[in-house]
Design a protein around this nucleic acid. Sequence first.
DNA 1: AGTGATCCGCGAACCACAGATGGGT
DNA 2: GCACCCATCTGTGGTTCGCGGATCA
Length: 417
Amino acid sequence: MSHLCDFCGEKRSVIYCRSDAAALCLSCDRIVHSANALSRRHSRTLFCDRCSTQPAFVRCIEESVSLCQNCDWNEHGGSAVAKGHKRETINCYIGCPSAAELSRMWPFFKEFPPTEDADCEQGLGLMTIDENSVTNCWGHPENGISGAGKLNNPGALDKFDSLVGSSSGLAICSMPCTADLVTGSVDSTTPKLSCPGTKDSELCKDGLCDDFNLDDVDLTFQNYEELFGLSHNQTGHLFDDHGIDVIFDPWDTCAANSNCQDEFVGEASSEGQVKPMPTTCSNAVSADSVMSNPGQNVDSSMFLPARQAHSCLSFSFSGLTGESNARDYQDCGVSSMLLMSEPPVFPAGPESSMLPTASRDSAVMRYKEKKKTRKFEKKIRYASRKAMADVRRRVKGRFVKAGEAYDYDPLAKTRSC
DNA sequence: AGTGATCCGCGAACCACAGATGGGT
DNA sequence: GCACCCATCTGTGGTTCGCGGATCA
């Protein structure tokens, strides 16, 4: 199943560029990603040795193969022997790393030709490995994508910025981002669902997090595959086991560990629209796993196969119509953070608060009021169409042409035929 | 415990048509 | 740039149907 380089079409592809969704050989990778500063930001990783279609995120030391999530699950999710295999995560990289740097990053990988493009390395900068970056992007700006060099999925973020209208660097890497996968160590010695300690305790104390679901704002993924890295069908696995409710339940548990961070996980609908929800931990799957093993140390191998979504979210506020206005959305205290494009990056210090006390209380008050009065009724966008539909005659509920026989006349209020 | 039948709830589909939208002249 | 024409798309509500989960024998 060897895959040829998408660029030259001759050599075997080794590198997968997530931003371009392209498979490249090493030399073409250098050529393509040394072209300009933006291309240097593309996050790349190895290809899966098994399927050769998905980016690898883990290296099985025993078998000396690089595996994507699915293949890892297939190979290591079944037999007890395979589960015991020691595995290493495969880091993504950006920039234009030299062979030596690649070798340092991937010591198992022996195919690096010497780097000849010295200029490239003098460009934007050397390779940056997404070590601790995006997992933490909300809570720890110093580790997040605030540093351009650590941008994990600049494409998705660019989309978000273009939609929101700023380049705020808002790090909504809510889904278990690439780096979540990359940085989460896979072997059993590594914990596990760390929710880097940035959950704003004040916010949650007021119940803002309890069932905060931004119901007023539609958030639409521009490209489902790109954003989640898995198909719609696969997405079902995210919540299969315990339902979406589990996402909320362990809030306290996680908070007790002071390891939570404010993140949003998408609830994918059939149309690809997603409503954001807070997750307690750094990825939804992790939360799922937590619930399935309350009080236990969770072997990360348990959640790894669960089709982690990766990549950052891009948002569009498609739900906004002409009948809406910004204030409607700002009324919901927390959601306004998104609308206003303010990066919800909380200072790391425990004493810090996201909002000044007064405005924060005000926001909380508004949120609670809105929560009480909010309605989930259908909104009519075109009253004239509703008026027409209301008086239109039907047969078995279906509209019929004017003049044809009908069995339901809304105006008559009685069935006729 | 496993299997099949039944019930129930939910969501998609269907229909016609006015109005919105976009491209071409 | 503006006006006009035309084709296409969108959204509206009541009913039906199919699917999946729950329950029971």
